[in-house]
C-alpha cells in the first residue's frame, strides 16, 4: 500500500499528483489538529452545551468565559507558567552550553577515559533517568534541594545531556578540520577556538537539541510530582494535572485550563519551528 502510494505521488509533475499530495497532507493535518480544536472550542462553551453537542461552535447562547475565570481564580496559573518557563529555559540553556562543551571535548581531544565517557553518555540516551528516581529523591533530600526549582533544573540537565552530546558530537565531526588547524597555527587558545569559532557554528544543531530537550521538560509530570510538588514550585503541567484531578467534573474549567496550557507551547513551538528544520537539515551533509 505504501509503495503504491509512492508510485502515484512520484509520477511526473502532474496536477493530479499535487492534488493527491495535498489531499493526504491536509487529511493528516485535520487528524492532528482536530482533537486540539475540540478542546479549544469547548473551553468557550457553557457546561450543558458541551455535552449537548461537543462539536458545535460556541454560539451567542452558549458562549462563556466562566471556565477561564474559574481557572484564574482557583489556581495560580501565572506562577505555574513562570516556574515552567524558568525551569525549561535554565535547563535547556545549560544543556546546550554544557552539552556543546562536552561534545567538543569528547570529539576533539584524545584522552584515556574518552571512550568510557562517550559510552556513558550514549547509555543515557537509552536508559531513562526515571529508573533512578528513588536514589535521585534521596540525593535531593541530602542536598536539601527538595521542593526547589534547582532540583528540577539539575535533573533535567542530566536528562537532556546525553542526546545533546550525541547530536552535537555528530555535528562537530562535520566541521572542516581546516578551521581549527588554522586557528591553532595562529596560537589561538583552545577556549577561544571553541567559544569564538565552534560555538557559533553549532547554532543550527542547537535548535534541534533545544526542541527535543524542551518538549519532555515542559511536559514532564513525574519529577515535578516527586521532587517539587509544593505550591510555590509547581510547574504548569503539574498544575494542570492537579487542577484536572480536582475539578474533573467541571469541564468548563478543565477545558479552559487545558487551553491555557496548550497556547504557550504552541507559541514557543511556532517560534522555534523554522530553526528546528534548519538544524535538522544542516546536520550531516555539507
Amino acid at each position: 500500500m505504501m509503495i503504491s502510494a509512492f508510485k502515484n505521488f512520484n509520477l511526473g509533475r502532474s496536477v493530479p499528483k499535487s492534488v493527491a499530495i495535498h489531499g493526504v497532507l491536509m487529511a493528516y493535518t485535520v487528524i492532528a489538529l482536530f482533537p486540539i480544536l475540540v478542546v479549544i472550542i469547548n473551553a468557550f462553551k457553557e457546561r450543558r452545551a458541551i455535552f449537548r453537542d461537543p462539536l458545535a461552535m460556541p454560539t451567542m447562547d452558549s458562549f462563556t468565559l466562566v471556565g477561564f475565570e474559574q481557572v484564574l481564580l482557583r489556581s495560580d496559573f501565572g506562577l505555574y507558567s513562570w516556574n515552567s518557563l524558568v525551569v525549561t529555559l535554565l535547563a535547556v540553556g545549560l544543556v546546550l552550553l554544557l552539552g556543546a562543551m562536552a561534545a567538543w571535548a569528547l570529539t576533539e581531544y584524545k584522552f584515556r577515559t574518552n571512550l568510557l565517557i562517550t559510552f556513558l553518555f550514549a547509555m543515557g540516551i537509552m536508559i531513562p533517568i526515571r529508573l533512578g528516581t528513588v536514589s535521585i529523591l534521596r540525593l535531593m533530600v541530602d542536598l536539601n534541594l527538595v521542593n526547589t526549582l534547582t532540583a528540577l533544573v539539575l535533573v533535567y540537565i542530566a536528562q537532556g545531556l546525553p542526546l545533546a552530546v550525541y547530536i552535537l558530537s555528530e555535528f562537530i565531526r562535520t566541521i572542516p578540520k581546516e578551521l581549527k588547524e588554522a586557528a591553532r597555527c595562529d596560537a589561538v587558545s583552545e577556549y577561544k577556538i571553541f567559544f569564538c569559532i565552534i560555538l557559533p557554528l553549532l547554532k543550527p544543531a542547537m535548535a534541534t537539541v533545544a526542541v527535543f530537550t524542551m518538549i519532555p521538560i515542559w511536559n514532564d509530570l513525574w519529577f515535578p510530582l516527586i521532587l517539587a510538588p509544593g505550591e510555590e514550585t509547581r510547574t504548569i503541567t503539574l498544575g494542570v494535572q492537579q487542577f484536572v484531578g480536582q475539578y474533573v467534573t467541571d469541564w468548563n474549567s478543565v477545558l479552559s485550563a487545558l487551553t491555557m496550557a496548550i497556547v504557550p507551547v504552541l507559541v514557543l513551538y511556532t517560534i522555534f519551528s523554522r530553526q528546528l528544520i534548519r538544524g535538522l537539515t544542516s546536520g550531516a551533509v555539507k
Binding site: V86, L90, G93, N144, L149, T150, V153, F195
Partner: peptide, 24 residues
Amino acid sequence: MLKARPVTLLKQSAISLTLVAATI
C-alpha cells in the same frame, strides 16, 4: 561575550536557588 554567558546563567540559577530556599 560567550564566556560571559555561563556566568550569568549560573548566577541566575544561584539567585533562583537562594530565592526558593529563602521562601521555604
